[in-house]
Design a protein around this nucleic acid. Structure first.
Length: 459
RNA sequence: GGCGACGUACCCAAGUGGUAAGGGAGAGGUCUGCAAAACCUUUAUUCAGCGGUUCGAGUCCGCUCGUCGCCUCCA
C-alpha cells in the first residue's frame, strides 16, 4: 500500500509521490519564541515528528526545516519590558524549546533558521515583489502585498477575497493599507519597536511574519518542495500568504502537499497563548507525568481530529503506556519465541495504518494486537522485541528503554529485603513478610509475585 | 453574517456502504498465605435526533439540535 496523505489544498487524501526521487523536502512552521511552547504547540510538533519518522521509516530521505520566529510584536515587547536585547530575550525560549523537544523525543529538524538571520533573503523577495507591482509601499514606509495581484489567493483556505473584505473586522482606519486584507511584508520602524530594526534598501524596519517562511523555505528547500505543515490556524492567513508571496516571486508551484494538524483543546475550548488557558510541558512534568505520557496521549487520536486535553485522559494514557513498558520488560530479548506470524501480521497492520494518512490510533491498536497475541501464546522473544522496536522507530515512545534485566537497576539493599521476605514467607511468618513488603513499597518499588518467584520493579 | 469541522459505550478514540478497532475505567476469573502486579474473559442490536437514497448507512443526501473552529496574532 502506498502512502496517502490528506492534502489541505485538494481536500482529499492523495497518494504521496515526492517531487524528486526518494528525497522529501519538509517545511514545518515553528515556534515564536516569546514564551514557552504550550502543549497545543507540541501536539503539532509531535504530528510533524511522526510524519517525518514515518517517511524515513518508509525509506525516504527527509530534509526538515523548522523556522524560529524570533522577531515579531510579542518578542519585541517581551524584550522591551524585560529591558534586554531581543536576542537575549529569545535565547531563553529557544533553549527551552529544544529542551522540551528532546524530552518529547521529537527528532531535531535538519535546520532551525531564525528570522533575524535571514533579513537579506526576505529583502530580496520583497524588492522583487515591489518591482513587479505586486507589493506597494505606503507613506510610513511599510510595504504590503496586494492580494488582488495574485489570482490564486484563497485557494488553500477556500476564502474568497470579497468574503474576506465583507467579513473583516479590522478597523481599517488604523491602517494605511489599500485594503484591509492586504498583509504586511515589511513593517516600518516606529517607537514601539525600540532598538529592534534593520537598515535595508527597503528602509528602516523589520520583516512581516509571513515573508520569513517564504524566504527560509526557499533557501533550504528550493522554490518548490514537497510538504508544508502547521496547525490548522495557520491555513489562513499565514499559509495562504506564503503561497501568494512565493509563487508571485518564483512563478513556480510552491508546495505539493499541505498538511495541517487540528487543535488540542483544553476542557473543550481552544487553547492559545492569548486566551491564557494553556499548559506547558513543564506543567505536565510538574504533575509527575513522564513526557512520553503526553506523546502517547497525542498519538491516541488522529492528527486531523480535535483532541481534548484533560487530566483524566492523561491518566488513561499513563496506564496505557505503562502497560507497553511492562510488556517490554517481560520480553526475552535474546531467544526467539515462534511468534513470527503474529509479528508479521502486526507490523503489516501497523504500516498500513501509518500509510493511511498517519492513522496512529489504528497503528497503536496493531501494537496492542501483537501484545495480546504474545500474552496468549505465553511469552514474547527476540522477534517480538525487534518488531516492537521497529514500530517504535515511528512512534518514538522510547520502548527500548524498558527492556528486561531491570534487576540491574534495583539497589542491593532492596534485593536483600526481598530475600529476607522470601525467608519469612517460607517459614510462614507472614506478618514479617508483609512488614518487609511495606518497607520495599515505601522505598518506591513494587513486588510482583509470579509463578516463577518474586520480581521487583520501580513503582 | 461568510466559510468549515465535529457529535460513536462510564471516559478517550478508530471506523474508506456490507453488518461497531484499540486504550482507560468497571465487573468476573487465573495466580497468590493474603494482597499487589501481571494475564485471561467481559462491557454499544447500536453510532445526537428526524426523514430520505440503497438489497444494505455510523458511513451518502436533507433538515433539526448541540459543540468547536477559521474569517484578527495564534500550533
Amino acid at each position: 500500500m502506498a502512502i496517502k496523505f490528506y492534502n489541505t489544498l485538494s481536500r482529499e487524501k492523495n497518494a504521496f509521490v515526492p517531487f524528486e526521487g526518494n528525497t522529501v523536502g519538509l517545511y514545518t512552521c515553528g515556534p515564536t519564541v516569546y514564551d514557552y511552547a504550550h502543549i497545543g504547540n507540541w501536539r503539532t510538533y509531535i504530528f510533524e515528528d511522526i510524519l517525518r519518522r514515518h517517511l524515513e521509516y518508509s525509506g525516504y530521505k527527509v530534509t526538515q526545516v523548522m523556522n524560529i520566529t524570533d522577531v515579531d510584536d510579542k518578542t519585541i515587547q517581551g524584550a522591551i519590558s524585560n529591558k534586554v536585547k531581543l536576542d537575549d530575550y529569545t535565547a531563553k525560549y529557544i533553549q527551552a524549546f529544544y529542551d522540551d523537544r528532546d524530552l518529547l523525543n521529537v527528532k531535531p529538524a535538519d535546520f532551525y533558521p531564525r528570522a533575524t538571520q535571514h533579513i537579506n533573503e526576505m529583502v530580496e523577495i520583497i524588492k522583487s515583489l515591489l518591482d513587479k507591482g505586486i507589493a506597494y509601499k505606503v507613506d510610513d514606509g511599510s510595504i504590503y502585498f496586494n492580494i488582488d495581484k495574485f489570482a490564486g489567493y484563497g485557494r488553500l483556505s477556500h476564502f474568497r477575497i470579497d468574503e474576506l473584505k465583507a467579513g473583516n473586522r479590522i478597523k481599517s482606519d488604523e491602517y494605511e493599507k489599500a485594503q484591509v486584507s492586504d498583509f504586511a511584508l515589511w513593517k516600518a520602524w516606529d517607537a514601539n519597536d525600540g532598538d529592534v530594526h534593520w537598515e535595508t534598501e527597503l528602509g528602516k524596519g523589520r520583516p512581516g511574519w509571513h515573508i520569513e517562511c517564504s524566504s527560509m523555505s526557499r533557501k533550504y528547500l528550493g522554490d518548490t518542495f514537497d510538504i508544508h505543515t502547521g496547525g490548522v490556524d495557520n491555513i489562513f492567513p499565514h499559509h495562504e500568504n506564503e503561497i501568494a508571496q512565493s509563487e508571485s516571486f518564483t512563478g513556480k508551484k510552491f508546495v505539493h502537499y499541505w498538511m495541517h494538524s487540528e487543535h488540542l483543546q483544553v476542557d473543550g475550548r481552544k487553547m492559545s497563548k492569548s486566551l491564557g488557558n494553556f499548559y506547558t510541558l513543564r506543567d505536565i512534568v510538574a504533575k509527575g507525568y513522564d513526557p512520553m505520557v503526553f506523546r502517547y496521549f497525542v498519538l491516541g487520536a488522529h492528527y486531523r481530529t480535535k483532541l481534548n486535553f484533560t487530566w483524566q485522559a492523561m491518566d488513561a494514557a499513563k496506564s496505557a503506556i505503562e502497560g507497553l513498558y511492562d510488556f517490554m520488560s517481560r520480553l526475552d530479548i535474546h531467544n526467539p519465541s515462534g511468534m513470527d506470524d503474529a509479528v508479521k501480521h502486526a507490523v503489516e497492520a501497523f504500516r498500513d495504518a501509518m500509510d493511511d494518512d498517519l492513522n496512529t490510533p489504528v497503528a497503536l491498536a496493531a501494537v496492542f494486537g501483537l501484545i495480546k497475541d504474545v500474552n496468549i501464546h505465553g511469552a514474547g522473544g527476540k522477534e517480538v522485541y525487534e518488531a516492537m522496536l521497529d514500530m517504535d522507530r515511528v512512534l518514538g515512545l522510547k520502548l527500548a528503554d524498558h527492556v528486561s534485566d531491570k534487576a540491574a537497576d534495583i539497589p542491593l539493599e532492596i534485593l536483600a529485603l526481598l530475600e529476607e521476605r522470601q525467608t519469612a514467607r517460607k517459614s510462614r511468618d507472614f506478618a514479617a513478610a508483609d512488614r518487609i513488603r511495606d518497607e520495599i513499597i515505601s522505598a518506591g518499588y513494587l513486588i510482583e509475585d509470579t509463578p516463577e518467584g518474586p520480581k521487583v520493579k520501580k513503582a
